[in-house]
Design a protein around this nucleic acid. Structure first.
Lengths: 342, 342
DNA sequence: TTGAAAGCGCTACCAT
DNA sequence: ATGGTAGCGCTTTCAA
């Protein structure tokens, strides 16, 4: 196993000092070092196939050019998509991405944050979990640059990039109402988090605006740890209770997919038997026999904004918090068009 | 901005040497250092909220405890899922994952590999792109541990973990035949790669085995850069040509999703008008009105095996190549059951 | 134009 | 039981 080629090897080979080699190889602009020496160093570096050790450079500079991304679950297409966009952005800026999943668990999230801090990442992009306020505060104390996405903590000033959950939910539910529904079930998850609070608030506001009486049993909070069961039970409840609903609003894609599956199993036809709408996009939505009406989040803008804010913060820390609220687009398809039935 | 706490700070505070502090804090087993000193060092470390600098440790040890994962596209649910599994595995082993997407481009892949090598990753897990043989050879030359997944290069001995593409494709197509199809279209992509070669070979073998004449126009290779268009055109061709097919086998999920969309657009009913089967799982498959028959790849085993092989190689290099062939499971649903129609 | 040397934070060998 | 010191690979200041 031949050893790795380092600056010293080149220096020895060329017959100059390590400092000179370093200067030539890293400092783009030639000129300080003689033409011949410069050429020779570059030639030998290539011959020896010199590969710079970025770890050493990082130790010296205190910057690793890596950024940590913490999502709740990389296998969720929604977050995978965001991760991909962020990956492209940071790669273009010369950074490397370290990706991890917190599974909506504060403890996991905390471990990941500590671990990545020890690895000296230059900054974080985080989808915060419930009960992780202290972690965010900790990052602030330590002056580690970070940007929250998807959700944030209103009481903790920080950079964040989210979509206008309230308005989007409002619009979707209003759409449901306008197509003839007066009883609407709402499935949510992780209600202590800002995004869900807003979606719920928006949905309810739409119903109130249209003078609908809201039966509290129409609101179903799904537990992260028992999604399938909770959803199955929740939907059965909604449809067979004393006051059955005619429509269901899924507050996220991870609710909608198993939810629709359940609707299928019950043998219900969409939108005839039940009207459906969801937050988030998903490849399954379009393929469904009755394409699903959904809120399309601008993931590309979200990812790019987050990276932009983060890298700006890294470059010049402490110049005020950027708090971005992106508009989402409602895509109305057949699943919510009860009005189409004749 | 208060400086980061380093060993020296603790040493000064406690009144001992840096070496002692290092020893106490990193070497789990106490005993060599006095009880009191040990206790005091630990106490001060906690008070000062000491965070070890893993970069420095890496420089010293030559190990970074990071592994690089290169997939073709992290936003593809299939690869996202694999990434998630690998993430969990390596995290458990104390490693951090750096994830990147090559977009099936050898050049991108090469840049990523170089970049991650400079970052001194301890090893790679790679979904190799076409024309990237030299990159693999390069890793071998440099003695960087790596494991190929999903595909590999038969002519280059290396660790790899793949599924039995030939047999799986054979079985699915045979299923299509057994349910009454004699003319079957096959959509593939990236045919120079081992996995696609095998799938194509398997599909054709099944047809030959059943004495079907294969019309070469039934084989459509889809270009990575024009998936939508190629698929739309390919499917129209298959269905409206001189010798129209009654079934289509999609050799991957990224072919099936847009393919099924096209079938929908054409207003064709599955499985009445056209019978369908696909490689790879996808959440859309189950939700489809006529659930799709597919080859379920054991992603969990695949990811775990890859990590296991890689970490073993890192720990003790050069002890023979592990080449794993996993069995995939055929899941027969309604989309391929032409026999169900009456 | 070039190089010596210090130092980034940590570990580990060898003394004491 | 403790600590001095060298060194991982690189950059950068200051001198020559």
């Amino acid at each position: 196993m031949k050893k790795k080629v380092v600056l010293k090897d080149i220096a020895k080979e060329v017959g100059v000092s390590i400092a000179t080699v370093s200067y030539v190889l890293s400092n783009g602009k030639d000129g300080r070092i003689g033409k011949e020496v410069t050429a020779k160093i570059k030639k030998v570096a290539k011959e020896l196939d010199y590969q710079p050790n970025l770890i050493a450079k990082s130790l010296k500079s205190g910057k690793t050019n890596t950024i940590g991304l913490i999502v709740t679950d990389l296998s969720n297409p929604f977050y995978a998509h965001i991760a991909r966009i962020i990956e492209d952005e940071v790669t273009q800026l010369g950074y490397t991405l370290m990706v991890s999943s917190s599974d909506e668990k504060a403890e996991k999230s905390w471990n990941l944050i500590k671990f990545l801090m020890h690895r000296q990442v230059d900054g974080f992009i985080i989808v915060p979990t419930a009960e992780s306020e202290d972690q965010i505060e900790h990052l602030k104390e330590k002056k580690i640059p970070f940007v929250l996405i998807d959700r944030y903590f209103p009481e903790i000033p920080s950079h964040h990039v989210v979509v206008d959950n309230y308005t989007s939910a409002y619009k979707v539910v209003e759409n449901l109402i306008q197509t003839g529904n007066t009883k609407i079930g709402i499935l949510t998850q992780g209600n202590s988090l800002s995004h869900m609070k807003e979606r719920t608030r928006g949905a309810i506001a739409a119903m109130e605006k249209h003078h609908l009486t809201i039966n509290p049993t129409w609101l179903k909070e799904i537990n992260f740890d028992s999604v399938e069961e909770d959803i199955a039970k929740g939907i059965e409840d909604l449809l067979t209770g004393d006051d059955p609903v005619t429509a269901i609003f899924f507050a996220s894609n991870s609710l909608a997919i198993p939810g629709i599956k359940k609707v299928n199993h019950l043998g219900l036809k969409v939108p005839t038997d039940i009207t459906i709408a969801s937050f988030d996009q998903g490849e399954a939505f379009d393929l469904y026999y009755s394409p699903i009406t959904y809120v399309h989040q601008p993931l590309s803008d979200l990812g790019k904004e987050a990276v932009h804010i983060l890298t700006t913060e890294i470059a010049s820390p402490g110049s005020g918090y950027q708090q971005v609220n992106l508009n989402a687009k409602m895509v109305v398809k057949e699943s919510s068009r009860k009005d189409l039935i004749f």
